[in-house]
């Protein structure tokens, strides 16, 4: 049975499409959502931002294959790298920041307010993503002419809001 995209993920999908369109003239296509029950990434690098608001807590993650992010960095900055290094990590953190900032605005319009936070990155094979929630997480795969990447999110109501 197909999984429905949670309404809280739509702002992130919209922000991803807008960010890559403006920053590197890239059209990206979201695929069907997948439910993930673990914290291991099958990509080479992830940008992570913790989300804390008055009602919700969670994490947003964007993860790239090495091929995809190296192509994106070259298209965006005109700089060619052969490995996922600190400069590439910086770009992933900035992409995460921009996507989160744009999604945050759309979420606020849905009455879900979140605080802005500083994103960070983690890289390497089978790296562990430190989510703020225990899961499960919803993953949206994206395809593009520069390679594949995913976004994933775990979000749940804050504990105090779940009492009674």
């Amino acid at each position: 049975m197909p999984i429905k995209v949670p309404k809280t993920l739509h702002p992130f999908i919209n922000a991803v499409e807008k960010t890559f369109k403006i920053l590197c003239f890239l059209d990206v296509t979201p695929g069907d959502p997948i439910i993930k029950n673990h914290k291991v990434s099958d990509k080479s690098i992830s940008g992570i931002v913790g989300m804390v608001g008055s009602k919700y807590i969670g994490s947003f993650v964007i993860s790239f294959t090495a091929e995809c992010i190296l192509n994106i960095v070259q298209k965006m900055l005109g700089e060619k790298y052969t490995e996922v290094n600190d400069a590439v990590s910086d770009t992933v953190a900035e992409i995460t920041n921009i996507v989160f900032g744009n999604a945050k605005k759309e979420l606020a319009d849905m009455n879900i307010t979140l605080e802005m936070a500083i994103p960070y990155t983690i890289r390497g094979n089978n790296h562990i993503i430190t989510h703020k929630t225990d899961g499960p997480y919803v993953v949206i795969p994206f395809s593009s002419s520069l390679g594949t990447f995913t976004i994933e999110m775990g979000m749940e109501p804050k504990k105090k809001d779940r009492r009674g």
Binding site: M76, A87, T91
Partner: peptide, 12 residues
């Protein structure tokens, strides 16, 4: 603080 954004702005 992010090198990437400084590069993007400087390039623009």
């Amino acid at each position: 603080d992010m090198v990437t954004m400084r590069k993007i702005i400087k390039t623009q």
